[in-house]
């Protein structure tokens, strides 16, 4: 099965094609990008596809990061993935950025708690953590720094993601042993493809995983009183 993986949820704009059976990445490209994903992504996918055979008919599945991450960024990737799936007749699956970050730690048979944390700004993080063997310690959620550290427990913890450093600082203060040496800022697109290959299309829907509401409040204050 050939999987086209797309990631624009954080500060990368990336795509790659994995031959899941052979476990081989056939082509990939990743740009580090704070903004402009909407302009860069489709030309990038075109380049990646041209490096295999230039056709989408050989793509059996599309995998895309659904967040948490930049709202606009993840919508770029999801809109592209769903449209590619529609036009190429391929199923589309969603993979969370946190799972993508955790996957390489879990795959190496890590004996400590493995956590992925993405900086959510305003003193918050998106956090997911698993124990050895894959048992969930913290399901993907939006947490304050303090709660994040509390939920990670007494450690030791190996942590990755853009929020790793801030969590580590807080955790070390609380006396928890934290290993930052394996931290990555964005998931590797090959891992998105691998997780996408084993995902169940009926459940891993390509829908945004915001983990936060849209931050809007109903307004009634402008109204003139009525009888």
């Amino acid at each position: 099965m050939r999987v086209l993986a797309i990631d624009t949820a954080l500060n990368a704009c990336a795509a790659g094609v994995l031959d899941a059976g052979a476990g081989q990445v056939l082509a990939e490209e990743s740009l580090t990008l704070e903004r402009g994903h909407a302009e860069e992504l489709l030309p990038l996918i075109e380049r990646v596809i041209s490096r295999i055979d230039g056709r989408f008919s050989g793509i059996d599945r599309v995998a895309v990061t659904i967040g948490p991450g930049s709202y606009t960024g993840l919508r770029v990737g999801i809109a592209a993935a769903r449209a590619i799936g529609l036009a190429a007749g391929a199923p589309v699956v969603g993979v969370s950025t946190l799972s993508g970050l955790l996957a390489p730690l879990v795959a190496t048979g890590e004996r400590r708690i493995a956590a992925a944390a993405i900086d959510a700004r305003h003193g918050g993080v998106y956090l997911q953590a698993v124990a050895p063997g894959g048992r969930t310690v913290v399901a993907a959620s939006h947490l304050s720094l303090r709660d994040a550290v509390r939920f990670l427990g007494s450690g030791p913890v190996v942590i990755t993601g853009s929020g790793a450093a801030v969590i580590a600082a807080e955790a070390i203060e609380a006396g928890v042993s934290v290993d930052l040496s394996l931290a990555e800022v964005t998931p590797h697109v090959a891992w998105i493809a691998r997780l996408g290959a084993i995902a169940d299309p009926a459940h891993a829907l390509p829908k945004p995983l915001y983990l936060k509401g849209p931050d809007a409040k109903p307004q009634a204050h402008a109204r003139v009183a009525r009888r």
């Binding site: 909407a38 992504l41 489709l42 996918i45 075109e46 989408f56 709202y71 606009t72 919508r75 770029v76 809109a79 592209a80 993935a81 769903r82 449209a83 590619i84 529609l86 036009a87 190429a88």
Partner: peptide
């Protein structure tokens, strides 16, 4: 509204690329 524009335009680009 740029968030919406990006969704429609990206969808169109992807359809154009594949077809």
């Amino acid at each position: 509204l740029i968030g919406g524009v990006i969704v429609g335009l990206t969808t169109a680009k992807a359809l154009a690329l594949v077809t």
